[in-house]
Simulated scan of single mutants.
Amino acid sequence: MNIPFLDLQAVNHEYADELKAACARVIDSGWYIGGVELTRFEQAFAEYCEVAHAIGTGNGLDALVLVLRAWKEQGKLQDGDEVIVPSNTFIATVSAVVETGLAPILVDVDPHTHNLDCVAVEAAIGSKTRVLLPVHLYGQLAPMPELMAIAERHGLLVLEDCAQAHGARLNGRRAGSWGHAAAFSFYPGKNLGALGDAGAVVTADAELARLVRALGNYGSSIKYQHDYPGINSRLDEIQAAMLHVKLKHLDADTERRRRVAERYLSRVNNPLIGLPRVTERAAHTWHLFVVDCPERDALKEHLAQQGIQTNIHYPLPIPRHRPYAELALSPVMIAAGLHERILSLPIYPTLGEAEQDYVISALNQFSAR
């Protein structure tokens, strides 16, 4: 049996007729940027995230960058201000900070959830700290009640990186509704994935929303009037139309992911394989199912020999990437070892029970070298 890490063809095939109809509708309309499909999706996504405003962007990195740039335009940030980010995250989180002239401060993560550790956050706050940038890793929210309390005590802005947490909740509140703003990616492999690059900013702040939209449209709110040094980062009509189709199915697809995760959690019993720790089982959206194994490379090879594709999120800590080598002096302890032990298993809505059982059997058969 061959089991891909993610079968996007199968995932999108379920909605192929709706997706094709959405594309045809846009093609026939003759309007391809900033039209009714974008407006419809932004309204629906804002409602889904339980916030007032959603602004489509070209991708998730741009969503992060545009919020930080908007805060600089508002005078809330200036070059050199510090942004606290988790040491275990995709490179885009740190790239956005550096790109906007700010200084990323890598902070350790909880050894069980791999999300930000609140004690480490408190210890890292200094005189130049201005922003907390928690990442909701794997589909589980960071400890937002505690982080928001920390932010309030120290007068910090909070930007949620929700690239892996579409629809996730904590204490009943959606990802994206906790901070002052949030950034989403709709990269094709996300739980809510476009058929190309796409992203969005969500916020309850009307002025921030207006500014983010202008900055992503060449710094313009009125055609040929450019009030800010902006960029071109807009969610096009075809991607917006397809995302609107897939948004209607997101909660059902999430429930299917949860069933896969529950099967893994209840049936993998190999003592060499550490299973994910879950804060709220009914709120986790399982973008990734990440196990912890001291013999990770041997486990990966064992699964590959049986036709099971896996992935590593992430194989290198941030300071091991050349552009960010100067961050190596950050006091990161727990996350420094994660990249040697963690392995992501196949998990997606169309993964069948027979395939799940095949993966589970292979995991339980694994033995130490």
Results as ranks from 00 to 15, higher is better:
1 M>L: 13
3 I>G: 00
5 F>P: 07
7 D>N: 09
10 A>L: 04
13 H>S: 15
15 Y>R: 14
20 K>S: 14
22 A>M: 06
29 S>E: 05
33 I>F: 14
41 F>N: 02
45 F>E: 00
49 C>Y: 00
49 C>N: 02
51 V>I: 08
54 A>W: 03
55 I>E: 02
61 L>V: 11
61 L>N: 04
62 D>S: 14
62 D>V: 14
62 D>M: 14
65 V>D: 02
72 K>Q: 12
74 Q>L: 12
75 G>P: 00
77 L>T: 02
79 D>R: 12
83 V>A: 04
84 I>D: 00
85 V>G: 04
86 P>R: 01
87 S>F: 03
87 S>T: 03
92 A>H: 10
93 T>Q: 07
94 V>R: 02
97 V>L: 06
102 L>A: 06
114 H>G: 05
115 N>R: 11
115 N>K: 07
115 N>G: 09
119 V>D: 09
121 V>F: 08
123 A>D: 11
126 G>A: 13
126 G>M: 09
127 S>Y: 13
133 L>N: 01
139 G>Y: 02
140 Q>C: 05
141 L>M: 12
142 A>D: 05
142 A>C: 10
147 L>G: 00
148 M>S: 10
149 A>N: 13
153 R>S: 15
156 L>M: 10
156 L>D: 02
157 L>M: 12
159 L>N: 04
159 L>H: 01
159 L>C: 09
161 D>S: 03
166 H>I: 11
167 G>V: 00
173 R>Q: 08
174 R>M: 08
175 A>D: 05
177 S>W: 03
177 S>F: 09
180 H>Q: 08
180 H>S: 06
180 H>M: 07
181 A>D: 04
182 A>H: 03
182 A>M: 03
188 P>R: 00
189 G>E: 02
196 G>W: 05
197 D>S: 15
201 V>Y: 03
202 V>Q: 01
204 A>F: 08
204 A>R: 05
206 A>N: 11
210 R>N: 10
214 A>F: 07
215 L>W: 03
215 L>S: 04
218 Y>H: 13
219 G>Q: 07
227 D>K: 14
230 G>W: 01
231 I>Y: 14
231 I>D: 05
231 I>V: 12
235 L>Q: 02
237 E>K: 09
238 I>T: 11
241 A>R: 00
245 V>R: 06
248 K>W: 00
249 H>Y: 06
251 D>T: 11
252 A>S: 10
252 A>M: 09
253 D>T: 06
255 E>N: 10
255 E>F: 13
257 R>N: 01
257 R>T: 01
259 R>T: 12
261 A>I: 13
261 A>L: 06
262 E>T: 15
275 L>F: 05
276 P>W: 01
277 R>E: 11
277 R>Y: 12
284 H>G: 04
287 H>W: 04
290 V>H: 03
291 V>H: 02
294 P>C: 15
299 L>W: 01
303 L>V: 04
304 A>C: 14
311 N>P: 04
311 N>Q: 12
315 P>L: 14
316 L>S: 15
318 I>F: 07
319 P>K: 00
320 R>E: 15
323 P>N: 00
324 Y>V: 05
325 A>Q: 11
326 E>Q: 14
328 A>M: 10
329 L>K: 15
330 S>T: 11
331 P>T: 11
335 A>N: 01
335 A>E: 05
336 A>D: 10
340 E>Q: 13
340 E>K: 10
342 I>D: 01
346 P>M: 08
357 D>E: 13
365 Q>R: 11
365 Q>Y: 12
368 A>T: 13
369 R>A: 14
